[in-house]
């Protein structure tokens, strides 16, 4: 906490609810884990490093957010406890983040959809009435802007590339699009966070997201998919069948060797 943490203004400032910080932190953590799966398998060594850099940025965001979540919870759990010792149903990440990597195009489309979400989200969270959250968001924003530049560039190359790359990346978009609805579907917690000035209105984030995504799709000569009706609710702990497998791999080592260090 900053030096002004005990000023009257900050003492009265609303703190973010635990669940809300978990949503942010878990989305970053799960996406980082997915991107990490590419290491050693990317189409070129330069992309291997690019994806790993993005994964590490997201992991850094997750650490700050989960450490803060642990403090809010006040039960002595740290970032590692929250990352490695929670069950699947306790994770609050957006379902989109846990979607399998598929081919490089699938990964890049998933990344674009989430980068274009995190940028306007972090922009607004930088002005959160929760000063700790505002600090974390301001740091994460610079990273996410670069991520968006990277994923946008690749979606344009693949969409406006060969006939095959265009068809494949359009198919990725159709597959992943339904999972974006959850991001903007305000539930009780989202509304409470808006009311207290801690978080942004998801509808405002959606408008910004739409503008960014549409611009990239237009340049990539890709068609925006029709809005699907089915909604996922990973942010409420109801996940696809993919998260359990991801966690099994991610959590294996700390569970089998508790307290293991390098």
């Amino acid at each position: 906490m900053s030096a002004t943490g005990d000023s009257a203004a900050n003492r009265d400032a609303p703190g973010a609810p635990l669940e809300y910080v978990l949503r942010l932190g878990d989305t970053a953590l799960v996406l980082a884990q997915r991107l990490g799966e590419w290491i050693g398998h990317a189409p070129a060594i330069e992309e291997d490093l690019g994806l790993a850099n993005t994964a590490l940025d997201l992991l850094g965001q997750a650490r700050l957010l989960l450490a803060y979540a642990g403090e809010i919870e006040g039960r002595g759990r740290g970032e590692d406890d929250l990352a490695f010792l929670r069950e699947e149903s306790a994770f609050r990440n957006a379902t989109l983040a846990e979607m399998p990597n598929g081919d490089f195009g699938d990964t890049i489309v998933r990344q674009l959809l989430l980068d274009a979400y995190q940028v306007p989200l972090y922009e607004r969270l930088s002005a959160s009435r929760d000063p700790r959250l505002a600090e974390i968001a301001a740091k994460a924003l610079k990273e996410s802007r670069y991520h968006l530049r990277y994923s946008s560039g690749w979606v344009v190359r693949l969409g406006d590339g060969t006939e095959e790359s265009h068809a494949r990346v359009q198919a990725s978009l159709e597959r992943l699009w339904p999972y974006t609805l959850e991001l903007f579907d305000a539930d009780e917690l989202d509304r409470a966070v808006v009311a207290s000035g801690v978080g942004p209105d998801p509808r405002a984030v959606e408008q910004d997201w739409s503008i960014r995504v549409d611009a990239v799709l237009a340049e990539a000569t890709l068609a925006r998919p029709a809005t699907a009706r089915y909604r996922w609710y990973g942010k409420q702990g109801r996940h696809s069948e993919h998260l359990g497998h991801l966690l099994a791999e991610m959590q294996h080592l700390p569970r089998v060797h508790p307290g293991a260090r390098w």
């Binding site: 330069e46 490093l49 690019g50 850099n53 530049r149 560039g153 190359r157």
Partner: peptide, 20 residues
Amino acid sequence: SVHAADAAMALEHARDVYTR
């Protein structure tokens, strides 16, 4: 050096490989 499809991609690869 890096491999890239064009100069713009080379710039991003350079950023990712050499300025980490």
